[in-house]
Structures are given as C-alpha cells and as structure tokens.
Design a protein around this nucleic acid. Structure first.
Lengths: 340, 340
DNA sequence: TTGTAGGCGTTATCAG
DNA sequence: CTGATAACGCCTACAA
C-alpha cells in the first residue's frame, strides 16, 4: 500500500516507445538478430532499456524463438555430496554454454522422479539430465522411458548419469570394476574376512558395488552382508548392528558409499572399535571428506564433477546417444592399513 | 537421420483436434479454469493428451497467465555444504508450494551475482532468493539493489539469506552473537590464547564472526589473526602457516567456518599437532561432518535448512519485508576439551 | 457447456 | 535500415 510505483515489468513496447522506434527495431537493437540498425537508434534503444530497467521476458523469448536456454537437472538430494558435486559439474558446463540450470529434487522416489521429468518436459529445456541410481522393480521404468522418448522426439536431449538401463545417452560409473579393484587391493593388504554394508539390492548402484566386491574377492575369504540404508544414518546403524552381533569374523568392512562408511566409522568408534586399527573400513565415491576423517578413508574415486561435465557434453554433442563409462580408481588410505 | 518421428512437441491445438473439441474446451478440461466441461468431453481431452504425450508449454502458460511457478536461487557454490543445506530447505518449501526452483551459481563473484540476478529477472520468477555473504566495497551493491528493486516493483518477491544490507526481506544468521557465545564458552573451558582463521574482512560473514569472537573474549586472553580463504583449502593453508610460525602462544584456534576448521585440523595432524589434545579447534555452521571428524568439532550451530525454509516463508508472506534473525547455538565437542 | 477471438511479450518475415 | 504484422502456445473474457 505504499506510494511506490508498482506495475508490471517494462516490455519491449515500452522501450520502443521510450526510444521512439518500433518494437521491431528495438528487438533488433537489443539482440542484434541482424546487424542492421542505425548506430544512433541502437544507442537510443539501449539507453531506454537501461533507463527503464528492462529485462527481456525469457518465457516470451522462448515462445517466439521456439527454444529455451535452460538445462534441467534431477537429483536425489542436493545436500548429498555425491549429487552436489555432479551438480557443480553440470553448472560449470552450463555456464560455459550460456545455459541456465533448473534443478529438481526427487528424494529417492521413482514416482516423484517420473512426475518431475514430466513437468520438466513442460519447461522445454534443451537438456534434461537425470541422475541417481536406477531402482529395479520400481514400475516407473517404462513410463520414464516414454516420457524421455517423447522429450527426445520433440527435439530435446536426455541424458542419464546412472546405469545404462534406458535407451538414452548415459554416463555410467564403473561400480562393478571399482569395487572389484578395491576387493583385490584389500586382499593384497592382507584382509580376508569382510562385512559389506549395502542398500536393498533393487538399488542398482548398491547392487553393482556389492557384486563387484564379491567378484573381486573371487571366492577368497568370507563375507557377511548387512543390509541398511544408502545414507550416513544407514551406515551408522549397520555398524551398530554388526558390533552387537560380534566382530570376530570380520577384519574389514566395505560400505557401498562414503557417507555410509563415514557414519559407520563414527559408530564403530562410539562402540570402542577403532577403525584402521581394530577394523579396516572402506567406502566408495571418494568424496571430499575422506581425507579429513580419521583415519583417512580408503575409497574408490569417482570423477563426480567430471560426470556432470560429461553429461552436458554428451547432451550437447550431435553424436548418437551413447554410453560414457567413467573410470574409477582405488585409493588406499589409513583406514585400511596393511595387515600383518 | 533415423526414421523416428521427429517433430515439435504436441500443442494444445493438437490435443483439441485429436479430441474433437476446441482449444478452449481442451484448455478448460486440462486445467479446470472453470468446472464447466461436460464429463465426456473432459475425458476425451485427457485421453487425447495422454495419447499424444502432451505437456503444456510452461513458457506459454507463463505468458498467458502473466506469472510463473518458479523460484530462483542464487548460491556461491552448490558443492559447499553450507549452501546445499540451504538449497535443500528452499527446495522443500518450494515443493510444498508447488514451485520449481532454478538455481544459479555465483562462485563468490559479486559481478557474476549481479549479472545472474539480472538475467534471473528475465525469468519472471515469483521469488528470487540470494544467498551468501555480502561483500563490502564490491561496487555492485547499489546496482544489485536497483535490480532487486525493479524486480519487486514488477511484483516479484526478493529475499536475501545474508546480512541485512539491502532493503529487502532478509534472513540473517546471528554471526556476531554466535561467535561471542563460542568465545565465552572457550574461556569457560579454560582457553586463553587464541588464533582466529578468517577471510578478508570485506566478506561480511567472516568479519562478523571474527568481531563477535573478539567481543565475546571481552579483552581477556590474546588473539593472533590469520587471514586466508573462506574454504577448506584456506583453513588448511592457514594452519600450515600457523604451525610454521610457532604455536607457543596459541591454545585454541577458531576458524570462521567449519570447512576451514576441518581443513585446519587435517593440516595440524599432518604437522604432528593433535587437535583436541595439543590444540583446541572450533568452527562455525555445524555442518553434518562435524560429528564424523575426529575429534568431533566444536562449532556454532546454524539452522541452515531452516534458513532456506524461512526465506521461502518470508517471500511468500504478505507482510512487509522484514529481517528474520536465526539464532545460533554453541555446541562444544571433543575438539575443545576443558583445559586443566 | 461450447467456441470465437483477442491478448500475453518476443521474434521474424516481408514490404517499404 | 525500418516498421507493420503474423506467428509462437496458451488462457480467458465474451458471445452463442
């Protein structure tokens, strides 16, 4: 109810009137669709635009031009370092390409993911990037595929950072190979008896890492599997359960991601079991905190930021949608010291 | 060059034709702008929409309706837990309000921040939330204010999660009070001689925390100030420098944020100085990893997620733009054990 | 209950 | 080089 001058944002018409030219000329002057505007008029237009605080209505441009300058990103959880690293990569690539990124959070629900992709499609972004593990038996797989297919048919570029499960460009992480390499490295360090903290096997990422680990072991040693959540809390809880059950037959635990491993380390410590001394601990992803935790966490490095960049590259390239497999690297640290 | 049926996305016209009704009826059936559509027709329209994989063009809706259903968020760095927690809060509130969040990364550059807000304005979002410390002497302050003012004049809601520096709704964190409380708590624990790791004083958040700490000390004890970057790397480097210089006159270090403190702890450890035993360490923000680091990090808890929620609430409310000050809580942990 | 028509802010075509 | 004017996809009086 103030006396402030309320009112709609100035439009191109306002600018044109203020500059004493037609909208067409104003439009041309502002975005040089053709270089043919008299310098003087161009200046007048720019001055008028500045004076009025004019900003072109992106939606209107989108309609008139028939295309937007945005990329849509679907993640499970922004606050999870795994996704925020990917998001950072996507953001960087988007900025370089002059695109705006819009971001939606699926929270691990396949239904919500589907719903998001649907409404995202309404945004008509140039690119849709869906991140996060596929979930088997979710029942939304085919619908998601249809949705993305419809999007592609309309000229959009869909890319997944996930498992190669849908017929779209996909950036995959070598989960199986990474875990197998880790298993071999741990065997090499003298470990024989393991526990694996994993999420429900329908979560593909977890399953791949779990299976990869077993296959890397190649039958050597023993493994007790503990199913839990794919989060820090899950790792923490699994560790508590394992301690309760007794640690006699485990020399090292592999948690299928770092936040689980870190939560587990804390739980072990709370129970008087010292990670790195009493028990080896390893994770997966090699998030930033691995080196700040004590003992530093053995992990499998995944180029997360690079995954985001690659996804954008894949999307923007004109090659047929392909799989881009990102390599992983085992990084041994103090949490799994060589065993006498 | 495949034989796939390429082509533009289906429009409302296509749906209408497919259903054998007019666009108006189709529009009404799809978004019940009025409940007056014969049930049979409504069904036909919905069926046609489904068959065609129709999704309304959000930009077109935005233009026709004169408003969008989006909120724009500006952060410094998505991968920083500080911002990703805020983003998570904003995302949650946005979802509840049925809004899509678009997110842009300023990377700590005031110029980039200004540029982002400018183009964001073109998006015509319902809300613009700008997060991150104000930076004094940036030279963009007034321009940013103008930009946001123009946005508000056009009916937008601008909110900052920052310092109260611009005449808009602002969610502030009690940096000064929190640090002062921390200082008192550390005095109470027997510490007297401090080092403070801070960023350049133009960064308001850093300055407020630094000054708050000094004021909490109230002249008691001694303080050596070390200027460095506002990041983990900054903390790490400051710690290295401090060790080189000698630690004889410091019993505890306060890093103005947790990632700095955590980086510092690692650096100290690398130098053979054990945090918590040889040296107290405290941070600010109380990010998730404080409890997973060893020793657990003393910090000042900031309701980050809540900040995001509050910002949305502030934006969506019809009250005059106000300041909403979020309280902080000192959390003493093992990194600052009571001193004999 | 339905359809026609005009408008939203831009861009782009096509005469001048 | 400039200015009408017709799209773009959707919504919404207004009229039927």
């Amino acid at each position: 109810m103030t006396a402030m001058d309320e009112g709609p944002a100035p439009t191109l018409h306002d600018v044109a009137r203020e500059a004493g030219v037609s909208v067409a000329t104003a439009s041309r002057a502002l975005n040089g669709s053709a270089r043919n505007v008299r310098a003087e008029n161009a200046d007048r237009v720019r001055a008028a635009a500045a004076r009025l605080g004019y900003q072109p209505h992106l939606s209107a441009q989108a309609i008139a031009r028939g295309s937007t300058r945005t990329v849509a990103l679907v993640v499970r959880d922004v606050a999870d370092p795994y996704f925020s690293s990917i998001a950072a990569g996507v953001g960087q690539a988007a900025e370089e390409a002059g695109l705006i990124v819009t971001m939606a959070v699926a929270g691990g629900s396949p239904e919500r993911e589907l719903e998001i992709v649907r409404t995202l499609r309404g945004q008509r972004p140039q690119v849709i990037i869906v991140t996060g593990s596929r979930i088997d038996g979710a029942g939304t797989r085919d619908e998601l595929a249809d949705e993305l297919e419809a999007y592609r048919t309309a000229g959009g570029r869909a890319v997944l950072i996930s498992q190669l499960d849908l017929p779209f460009g996909t950036v995959t992480i070598d989960n199986h190979g990474g875990s197998a390499g880790l298993a071999r490295a741990l065997l090499g360090a003298g470990y024989r008896r393991f526990a694996v903290f994993h999420a429900p096997p329908s979560l593909r990422t977890s399953r791949e890492r779990h299976e990869g680990f077993l296959s890397g072991l190649g039958g050597a040693g023993s493994v007790v599997a503990v199913e839990t959540g794919f989060t820090r809390a899950g790792g923490h809880e699994a560790a508590r359960r394992l301690v309760e059950r007794g640690l006699d037959d485990v020399e090292a635990v592999f948690a299928v991601n770092d936040v689980m491993a870190i939560g587990a380390m804390t739980a072990f410590r709370e129970a008087g079991v010292l990670p790195g001394r009493d028990l080896g601990v390893a994770g997966f992803d090699d998030i930033a905190s691995t080196v700040d935790v004590v003992p530093a966490l053995t992990s499998v490095a995944v180029p997360l930021r690079e995954a985001g960049l690659s996804a954008m590259r894949l999307a923007l390239s004109d090659d047929a949608p392909a799989e881009l497999r990102l390599p992983t690297t085992v990084v041994l640290r103090e949490s799994t010291p060589p065993r006498a």
